[in-house]
């Protein structure tokens, strides 16, 4: 799993590549801990290159959202596959997160 982050004018776009699972979730959390420590106002997480997410991955994303909300930050998820979206639907996390089809849509109006 790798994350490439591009920050500009208070918006961080994080493009995740690979699997978000019990082994990789701690590294993902560390990446976002830095952005959250800086109180980054807006974060878009592009999941279009994510091939697998387990319950640890879902939990990590929930943790990032909670931490962002604690200082009024906004976060959107983008580009997830139909398969991964189905996991959000099963767990009702699709109601908790703002999920957009593409990174461009996620950035627009954030």
């Amino acid at each position: 799993m790798a994350v490439k982050t591009e920050s500009n004018n208070g918006l961080a776009i994080c493009r995740v590549d690979g699997e978000i699972n019990i082994s990789t979730s701690p590294d993902l959390k560390k990446t976002f801990d830095k952005l959250i420590a800086q109180k980054t106002p807006k974060i878009v997480i592009d999941l279009s290159k994510v091939t697998y997410v387990d319950s640890s991955g879902l939990a990590t994303l929930v943790g990032i959202l909670k931490n962002m909300r604690s200082y009024g930050g906004k976060m959107r998820l983008a580009g997830m596959s139909t398969k991964i979206k189905s996991l959000f639907e099963i767990t009702k996390l699709d109601k908790l997160f703002e999920i957009m089809a593409t990174e461009e849509e996620a950035i627009a109006g954030l």
């Binding site: 387990d54 319950s55 939990a59 990590t60 909670k66 099963i90 767990t91 009702k92 109601k95």
Partner: peptide, 18 residues
């Protein structure tokens, strides 16, 4: 139930549901 209002923000407990 991890989908309930009081549990949805918890960072565990979704494995059995999946």
């Amino acid at each position: 139930d991890p989908t309930g209002n009081s549990s949805i923000l918890k960072e565990s407990g979704r494995g059995v549901l999946l």
